[in-house]
Design a protein around this nucleic acid. Structure first.
Lengths: 145, 145
DNA sequence: ATAATACTCTATAAATCCGATAGACTTTAT
DNA sequence: ATAAAGTCTATCGGATTTATAGAGTATTAT
């Protein structure tokens, strides 16, 4: 499961992408519309600003707005920013790598191979999924599943 | 990331599958070999017993042993037993379903669709991966990746 | 200039979960 | 009987998560 922080972040980003023609959007507006505690949201938006995804404008008429193109913001990066590694085990991550004590030989470890597969597929799907594709899929009316 | 509990469980199960011809295996042996804290492991093995995967024998010559066939124990079920849902969001789980507050229309929610895909792939891979396939892949010498 | 607006920072609290340990108890083989 | 081995209950410290409060700072319209 992803953290609420990450979930809130995605929802906020999708809204900012959807409304990106409207100029800066108030924190309070994102908070109300998404039922996200405002103070909690503030911290999240700041993180996204530091990460170079958003920028903000202070003062009257201010608010937050997207500075990357919607096609350039993918779910893998957002989840990593808030929740760390996507992999299920530390031994199959790149940035957060850690050896497993329990494992005698990592190169032949069968558990590791499975988790590697899961990671690869997960990353593939999340990388392919950007704010642009999410918005587009919202508009399509056919229902999957 | 999966919990240590789940990771320990998988390692213990793989060992029990590997040594299943040897009769009951001592908790202490699994603990030592896998560098798993013994008391913690005890609770894990009990959970697996209650789940019908293992059985135990008390007294001298006792220990734990697998009662399901290695092909019948898959990673998806084990992870679910210890860590709950595999999905990244509560709105794409079956057993642990919960509606997301932030979401206006679940049927068109783009975020949900992505997470649904991730879940489907993850479950597919983990269901296909059993104690039997893990053991088999340990024996193969070629190295992926 | 200045008041209103809105973002930024620091601190902290409550709740929950995780990983681990202790010790007494029960069952079983010999 | 007794030693071996699993079972049960209770508990603990620490980390993490989620959330809130309040003071402080920057910006803009007018």
């Amino acid at each position: 499961m992803i953290s609420k922080k990450a979930k809130y972040a995605i929802h906020a980003l999708v809204k900012l992408a959807r409304d990106r023609e409207k100029g800066p959007i108030l924190i309070s507006e994102i908070s109300k519309e998404g039922h996200i505690p405002q103070k909690f949201l503030e911290a999240i938006l700041l993180d996204l600003k530091r990460a170079g995804v958003l920028n903000s404008k202070k003062g009257k008429g201010g608010g937050y707005y997207l500075i990357k193109k919607p096609e350039e913001v993918n779910m893998a990066d957002v989840l990593r920013l808030f929740d760390g590694a996507l992999a299920l085990l530390p031994c199959v991550t790149y940035k957060y790598y850690e050896r497993c004590e329990e494992c005698t030989d990592e190169l032949t470890c069968g558990i590791r191979r499975v988790m590697q597969q899961v990671r690869d597929e997960t990353v593939r799907i999340l990388k392919d999924s950007t704010l642009a594709t999410v918005l587009a899929s919202e508009k399509s009316t056919y229902k999957e599943q």
